[in-house]
Design a protein around this nucleic acid. Structure first.
Lengths: 345, 345
DNA sequence: CCATGCAATGTGAGCGATCACATTTTGTGA
DNA sequence: TCACAAAATGTGATCGCTCACATTGCATGG
């Protein structure tokens, strides 16, 4: 085999303007230009003006790599998210991007297709290779914390989780309260046999909703079966709905999210049952489509955008060493529509 | 120099190890370490091995900023996306992230909350400030191209659009064909009065679907009203569905996406109409929930993940100067479920 | 009129890597 | 045995910027 012939293409002569080009054209030193770029104080307004004009004129853009190299600050925040196209995480992500951009930070996202330890570690490594200054974990699974600890990472971390106790810094919608609200709503309607279709085992959110459900059940001195563990999809809701009808007696279902609720509605309809006449169904999230389900879904609304914004506020605060950060939980809201009614007796 | 005389008691800085630390510990020059990092050819296996061991041992991570500075390559791809939590764009985005990571590129995303020219330009500027080497535009609106041209950007661009003619490099699901398939399906069922509820005016995808619809209508010598322009949401579908019933005669609706179709189903059901008995409805996208709508929705499936993967293949190919890139359109697929039936006469 | 002090601006060094080229080591055939 | 090319490794310069410190300009007061 021939030795690797490295095809070195002649780089175009057109080099991007640098700080010295600006300095020369403005008739100042490069340090003065640097001061203008960094809003230093002792700069004569007329000088600043002149420099800014040159920058504008030649379309100068500061080289972030050079800046990052010398300051060892990347101004980049990493986001680790699970690879789901769900409404909640996506909405939060958009809000995070907006908020970060506004705070002058850059976002790099890595999504996890699988939730095994290996891919989590790999995703984290990928982000760390970019020298991120902070990390946001959306829809976190418990294992993320293990991976984080294992890598002995020291950057600030904010998780959009639920319990607020696993991670030192976390932020969340109070999902336990939300689940309690949903369950109590059913209890108040007279339901005594309520099934909970939960999310996957290792999702913190799933666990919190389950806990809220069980809290409410216990407080009302009711009994229940062990919650069914699902995968958040409508398909799962449909299948479990079909199966449930075969071997369980119940008058209401509290689904861990709206998609699974949709599948349940489908299954019950197929079986000739009326919702809410025969069975009441409650979801969680209040995705924009929930009000157009048949019947329109009673669910728990979460403010995902607010969650995203606050997570960045928290993280940036921590990166920049501020005190008194706002960790308060966000309260969800019960939205009663037409999928719930008094229990038949 | 005399060994032993210099007591190296440097104050242990909390500095991350650099290439020279590795070199010293491995007993080679920094250049050799660099060669190992970049998989250069002429490295003795034993040397390489030793260097890799040191790297592993002290947890050395190459500094991307320094590398980017000297190579003027950021290995970063920007993604510009609209701030919607919709299934399609989100799925593509995840696929893009995966594919990019695999190709050794980093993704930074910017989402546009509004679609005015200003915010598009701002979003592009934000990405350019990171020296991105390529740009992927998801769910592009026509104005993005104007902004791109106006900034006189010279980096490779791939758009996940539909028509494939506005941009020099674009990749798409053949949405015109998809819309034609959906419409022909209705025509074959004997429908003669078909309404199209389209997406927003400045979305290329909306336009392509509209064009496919009109093509099919014309080919069948049918007449139709001017399509209604919507906003992709279920809410809009619901409202327009209610209004349509008041002043138009039709037996079928082709909705620009599944969400609007869901809203239409809701509106028709509210009016006491049966789908598909009285009215047939077709959607577009095949979101995972579509099969659980009431009734399960006939729709056009797009392979969003494949689209995302191919967009990165295309972009990376272009960045690295390859030839023979695959621009072939991806064919969508008609999924017939229960929301369509023969026209009543 | 000059020492003083502060505001404004300039100079040299270096962040951590790669590039181009220089140098040493190794392998080969005459 | 030795010239000599190829393989392996080393040295100096440099990317664009910020840092720490040095220098200049200019009003002020004694």
């Amino acid at each position: 085999m021939k030795p690797g012939t490295t095809v070195t293409m002649e780089p175009p002569k057109v080099r991007a303007p640098n700080i010295r080009d600006v300095a020369r054209l403005a008739g100042v030193s490069y340090q003065t230009v640097s001061r203008v770029l960094n809003n230093a104080e002792s700069i004569k307004p007329s000088t600043k003006q002149r420099v800014l004009e040159v920058i504008e004129q030649i379309g100068y853009r500061p080289n972030q790599a050079a800046r990052a190299l010398v300051t060892s600050k990347s101004r980049t925040i990493g986001v680790l998210t699970s690879q789901t196209a769900h409404y909640g995480p996506t909405t939060s992500l958009h809000a995070i991007e907006d908020a970060a951009r506004e705070a002058g930070y850059l976002i790099t996202t890595t999504s996890l297709s699988t939730s095994d330890q290996g891919s989590i570690t790999e995703g984290l490594e990928h982000l760390m290779a970019q020298a991120i200054e902070g990390l946001v974990v959306i829809a976190p699974q418990v294992r993320v914390f293990d991976a984080f600890r294992q890598l002995a990472l020291t950057i600030p971390l904010v998780t959009l989780d639920s319990t607020g106790q696993d991670a030192p810094r976390s932020l969340s919608v109070d999902q336990i309260a939300g689940a309690r609200m949903a369950t109590n709503h059913l209890i108040e309607l007279g339901h005594e046999d309520i099934v909970h279709v939960a999310g996957p085992r290792d999702w913190i959110e799933a666990e919190a909703r389950m806990r809220g459900f069980l809290d409410a059940i216990n407080a009302a001195d009711l009994r229940t079966h062990r919650p069914v563990l699902g995968d958040w999809t409508a398909d799962f809701g449909y299948h479990v709905g079909t199966e449930l009808l075969d071997f369980r007696d119940f008058t209401a279902v509290f689904a861990g999210n709206d998609q699974m609720a949709l599948g349940l509605l489908h299954a019950f309809r197929n079986a000739g049952l009326d919702v809410p006449g025969d069975i009441s169904v409650v979801g969680f999230d209040d995705i924009p489509e929930a009000r157009h389900f048949f019947p329109p879904l009673t669910t728990v609304r979460q403010d995902f955008a607010e969650l995203g914004r606050r997570s960045i506020a928290l993280l940036v605060g921590e990166i920049e060493g501020e005190e008194d950060l706002d960790h308060a939980q966000i309260l969800p809201e019960l939205i009663v529509r037409e999928s719930t009614a008094r229990a038949r007796r």
